[in-house]
Nucleic acid binder design. Structure first.
Length: 471
RNA sequence: GGCGACGUAGCCAAGUGGUAAGGCAGGGGUCUGCAAAACCCCGAUUCCCCGGUUCGAAUCCGGGCGUCGCCUCCA
């Protein structure tokens, strides 16, 4: 039974979608004003696993991911670089999306951009104005926070607590310092669009309410993003949507799902601090499998303290999984369950994997079962069990489907086609030297092969060459 | 100051009332010409500290200490 943690209630609850068999999800994506770092990959990978598991549990999943392609910093950076806002946004978004594909993240059902959704945005603001939940002032339109009775219910804050700690620059146009902009009036040199309440551009929060409404209606089963979005972004989004669309007894969202931050030296990675580790670079140097696996090695709600050494260490474990795959990928299917502790690790793996993911998408536990399975398979296969090989193959395929695990051969991983001719020649020469009993020469050749970036392993059925892994 | 989360072996990390998964690193073996790979064995009488509840707590409650996130743009 799938259970999901919900930020609003602070509890893990059994999952049920409003429409049986169909789960809808909205995830806040990025504002592409600069290069993406590891932290930006986390929600994408996490939601990829969530989506895969929901589908595995029989749900049709409609996933909407947004890209905020107009915003203050985007405008700022574009002006600095002397390029159009749209061009800067598209460039960074394209790079981000390419990185996500490399990480094996499945495309969302809808990838929505704020600038392509001006109609629903304007329509939503008009509804808020008509209902008295918003007001025009100084060319802008603001949300009247006090018109919503339970403002703060998602982020567990009280209006009074917030007021005492306002750090927001006082804005003379606002009735209340906590009111926030739905629409920012036109300013010279900035992108703007026409609206009944004056030319301008959307505020940060309204786009998500509008796009969720457009693609999913007034109810969303799962709404996600980083924990840093809980306040004010999701709080504001929630009250906007409720004020505009819902009666007060329908919260509009089934489960708020927030992933923890990726930190560096104990501090959150952030574009503004510039302490992020460039994602593309990390993938380039360690491969997508390592990056993806590393992100899943910690439960999605926990903070992940990034360390390159930690990533490399985890990748070493993942290599064992890959080696098993190489050994069993051609094994014939085996259906009969195996007994004994080792046999059970193989036979029971599908159930254990599902159970782990059912428990609020516990990927570290799932990976633990995977490693158990790998060890059991290696042991039984060494003992000559064909059935173990068949079960291991099935299990690895299941893990690939559920976790997006990358197996050798799934995608180009450096020079996966085999060693270049000169290295292959060295390998052959070494094999001959070994046959002749000239071990000194064989060892020298192994050194030469390693210097070329390859490793030879002598197996019973002959030498195997593989690229030398990093570090 | 307010709100929220967290503190498990050298490192990473599951476990949230029934007697501590898994990975990496390390030590010892088996195998190997030597390696590598693989497998086997070894590590927390103990889960930040102090009280309490309970037959029983890493898990629940109270109090400390420490860390992080949010309260401003933020995945």
């Amino acid at each position: 039974m799938l259970a999901v943690y919900d930020t609003a209630t602070g509890a893990v609850r059994p999952f049920a979608s409003r429409v049986p068999g169909h789960a809808t999800a909205y995830v806040c994506g990025i504002t592409p004003y600069a290069e993406a770092h590891l932290g930006h990959a986390r929600p994408a990978v996490v939601w990829d696993v969530i989506t895969r598991h929901l589908q595995h549990r029989g749900y049709r999943v409609t996933l909407v991911v947004n890209i905020t392609d107009v915003d203050d910093r985007l405008i700022e950076r574009a002006a600095l670089a002397g390029v159009p806002v749209a061009a800067l946004a598209e460039e960074n978004a394209a790079r981000y999306l390419a990185d996500m594909r490399r990480l094996g993240v499945l495309d969302p059902t809808y990838l929505s951009r704020a600038t392509e959704n001006l109609d629903p945005i304007v329509a939503l603001i008009e509804r808020l104005l008509a209902r008295g939940a918003a007001y025009c002032a100084g060319g802008d339109v603001y949300m009247r926070v006090r018109s919503v009775p339970d403002y703060g219910a998602l982020s567990h804050r009280k209006l009074d607590d917030l007021r005492s700690g306002v750090r927001i620059t006082p804005n003379p146009h606002k009735e209340d310092p906590l009111d926030f902009a739905l629409w920012k009036g036109e300013r010279p040199g900035e992108p703007s669009w026409p609206a009944p309440f004056g030319r301008g551009r959307p505020g940060w929060h309204i786009e998500c309410s509008a796009m969720a409404w457009r693609y999913l209606g007034s109810w969303v089963d799962l709404h996600g993003g980083g924990v840093d979005l809980v306040f004010p972004h999701h709080e504001n989004e929630r009250v906007q949507t409720r004020a505009a669309l819902d009666s007060q007894d329908t919260p509009g969202v089934g489960y708020w799902v927030h992933n923890g931050m990726v930190t560096s030296s104990g501090v959150k990675m952030s574009k503004s601090l510039g302490n992020g580790t460039a994602l593309a670079d990390l993938i380039q140097r360690h491969g997508p499998a390592a990056v993806r696996g590393y992100l899943l090695s910690v439960h999605y709600r926990s903070p992940l303290e990034f360390s390159e050494a930690g990533l490399v260490e985890f990748a070493r474990g993942l290599d064992r999984v890959g080696r098993l795959w190489e050994a069993v990928q051609d094994a014939p299917p085996a259906a009969a369950p195996l007994g004994g502790e080792l046999g059970e690790a193989l036979s029971q793996f599908p159930l254990r994997l599902d159970a782990a993911l059912d428990a609020d998408f516990n990927t570290p536990a799932a990976l633990g079962h995977l490693f158990d399975m790998v060890r059991a398979a290696n042991g039984l296969i060494a003992g000559g069990s064909q059935a173990a090989a068949g079960l291991a193959r099935r299990n690895l395929l299941l893990a690939r489907e559920a976790l997006g695990l990358v197996l050798p051969g799934d995608q180009p991983r450096g020079a996966s086609a085999g060693p270049p001719a000169p290295v292959a020649a060295l390998v052959a020469e070494r094999a001959a030297a070994r046959m002749a009993g000239d071990f000194a020469r064989a060892d020298a050749l192994r050194g030469a092969i390693q210097a070329a970036g390859w490793v030879v392993e002598d197996r019973r059925d002959g030498p195997v060459v593989r690229p030398r892994s990093e570090t």
